[in-house]
Design a protein around this nucleic acid. Structure first.
Length: 539
RNA sequence: GGCCCCGUCGUCUAGCCAGGUUAGGACACGGGCCUUUCAAGCCCGUAACACGGGUUCAAAUCCCGUCGGGGUCACCA
């Protein structure tokens, strides 16, 4: 029975690299009919764990990476918080000491540091002298009489080689002589991560330890504990870490300011901020950024697209397939096709994959995705009235593939407000209406035709405009830009006739009328200003 | 610095283990088509085996070395 685990520390956020690890653990367990366990590695903490794990659980849930055991779902190995399992670790420490694999050490931190410095000065690797090691009660009593306090250290081998058969990296060898006598229990009696991790992996029956590459160097000390305690050695698989945009450095949430300088990354963030602004949010930049999973959830990305992108960050099936649904991933994923080199975070590629997943959604699915965003800004009610549904459906259909994430619906405000609330882009308004008296004249004439038009379907409207254009001997482009700006306030948008049809005759006429009169006023004011400007110098 | 890992187009990668490919794909980029704007779509194109030695008829692929990048060396996880 395969059992894998994802064991984050409660830091208050879930970043892309962590999710990628969780995904691979989840995929591996699921496709082997095994279990995926979520464990919170909080051996260090006195912070508010409940608050700090919330974003982690929420992120995994959103992505559909369900866990069989862990926080909120329980399981036979409760509790799933390391902070609540100390007695187990302490028992393991006693066992290690009894077996001669660990010892009480009474060195003061500054004494260790002095040895370390001495080694550094002589350019030789640091190995603790074990001078304050206490292996008998008499030793302990003597050191304690000096007022020393003990930590427990691993009594690591000092010669020989450890061979690890890693499922991703193959055979890796470590000389034992390079290993330290790591501390496994603090002076205050609490136990440290490496010990806790090994004990829990054993207690929870973890068969495959799948984690990021940065743990590869930590593996020897863990294997030492595993063997000293007589546990079966789990299979290890060390995934390449996720690197920052345009570099091979490990992704770090602390270097955000630097990533923003990367154009693609910056664009992705900017797009997100625009949507947040339309929602009236001012999110915490520490959490609302493309390194964090929360960012994608709030903007209406598709979980499946994120999963697809993440899977490709360090894994490939073959030379050409890159679109994967969740089911595809479950079917085709395999650890032996995981890459060894780090993969850097590529914002553009993430967008491209999101677009492909979005494009295959049905209108109905897209509608449901977009609905909460519209409700949040008050365009439609909860639940929406029939006519609101219809309008929303029409806009979503007309916008088509322009809506790349659910939050993109918010750029179509003009279809959800009345004519008096339409906002005009200043540049477009000036160019297409204020400074285009001919365009205004054509628009005025066309409005008369629109007023008599019964059939307001896109096709009929297009035919109407065609006829108008032919009769006047002009080109479509001579009028359509003015029409677009007058009706939507914008220079760009989806098909003009779809837009007119959605708004309906009364609204369209009202908008044209308003735009025309505003443009005339602006022109008059402009002429006046120009005239005044000329007069002033002489006067 | 020691130990460990990694190095194919700008990016993500296939190919490497079992040597022989015009070194393939996608994203990005450039050009064209389409066109009422934008997006999409379609067609075409630019672009890579870190370097140096071997082994071999033949090396991205096997061996050695160099260089470069990264990880790790806590009473953090």
């Amino acid at each position: 029975m395969v059992r894998t685990r994802f064991a984050p520390s409660p830091t208050g956020y879930l970043h892309i690299g962590g999710v990628r690890t969780a995904l691979f653990c989840w995929l591996f367990a699921r496709q082997h009919g095994g279990q995926f366990i979520l464990r919170i590695d909080d051996t260090d903490q006195d912070r508010n764990v409940a608050e700090a794990i919330e974003p982690i659980l929420r992120g995994l849930r959103w992505l559909g990476l369900d866990w069989d055991e862990g926080p909120e779902v329980g399981g036979p190995h409760e509790p799933y918080f390391q902070s609540q399992r100390q007695p187990l670790y302490q028992a393991a420490v006693r066992e290690l000491i009894a077996r001669g694999a660990a010892y009480y050490d009474y060195a003061r931190p500054e004494e260790i540091e002095a040895e370390r410095q001495a080694a550094l000065a002589e350019k030789r690797p640091f190995v603790y002298s074990r001078r304050w090691m206490a292996e008998t009660d008499a030793d302990r009593a003597r050191f304690e009489a000096e007022g020393r306090r003990a930590v427990v250290r691993l009594k690591m081998p000092r010669e020989g080689t450890l061979v690890i058969e890693d499922l991703v990296r193959g055979r890796v060898e470590f000389p034992w002589s390079m290993e330290q006598d790591h501390v496994i229990q603090r002076a205050d009696g609490t136990c440290l991560y490496h010990l806790a991790s090994v004990v829990d992996d054993y207690e929870m029956g973890i068969t495959h330890v799948i984690r990021a590459e940065e743990h590869l160097s930590n593996t020897p000390r863990q294997v030492f504990i595993v063997e000293a305690l007589g546990y079966p050695r789990p299979q290890y698989a060390h995934l390449p870490f996720v690197a920052e945009p345009g570099s091979k450095n490990k992704l770090s949430k602390r270097k955000l300011a630097q990533y923003v300088k990367n154009k693609d990354f910056g664009d992705l963030l900017k797009h997100g901020q625009e949507i947040a602004a339309r929602l009236g949010l001012t999110p915490d930049p520490e959490r609302f950024n493309p390194v964090m999973i929360e960012f994608y959830e709030r903007l209406g990305y598709l979980p499946e697209a994120i999963l697809n992108y993440l899977a490709l960050l360090g894994w490939a099936l073959d030379d050409s397939t890159e679109f994967f649904t969740r089911e595809d991933l479950l079917r085709y994923f395999s650890l032996d096709r995981v890459n060894r080199a780090p993969a850097s975070f590529d914002a553009k590629r993430l967008r491209a994959i999101q677009e492909r997943h979005m494009a295959r959604l049905s209108a109905e699915e897209k509608l449901n995705l977009v609905l909460p965003f519209c409700q949040q800004v008050g365009w439609v009610g909860r639940p929406p009235r029939d006519e609101e549904w219809q309008r929303l459906r029409a806009v979503v259909t007309a916008a088509g593939e322009r809506i790349k994430v659910a939050g993109d619906i918010l750029q179509y405000e003009e279809f959800f407000v009345r004519h008096e609330a339409v906002r005009y882009e200043p540049e477009a308004f000036r160019k297409r209406l204020v400074e285009a008296p001919k365009g205004r004249e054509l628009l005025r004439e066309f409005a008369i035709l629109l007023g008599k038009q019964e059939d307001f379907s896109p096709a009929a409207l297009e035919a109407l405009l065609q006829r108008f254009v032919e009769e006047k001997g002009i080109k479509v482009s001579d009028i359509i830009h003015a029409l677009r700006v007058a009706v939507t306030g914008k220079a760009i948008g989806f098909g003009m006739f779809d837009g007119l049809s959605i708004l309906g005759r009364e609204e369209v006429l009202a908008r044209i009328g308003r735009a025309l009169s505003l443009a005339e006023q602006a022109e008059a004011a402009g002429e006046l200003a120009a005239r005044v400007g000329k007069v002033e110098p002489t006067g």
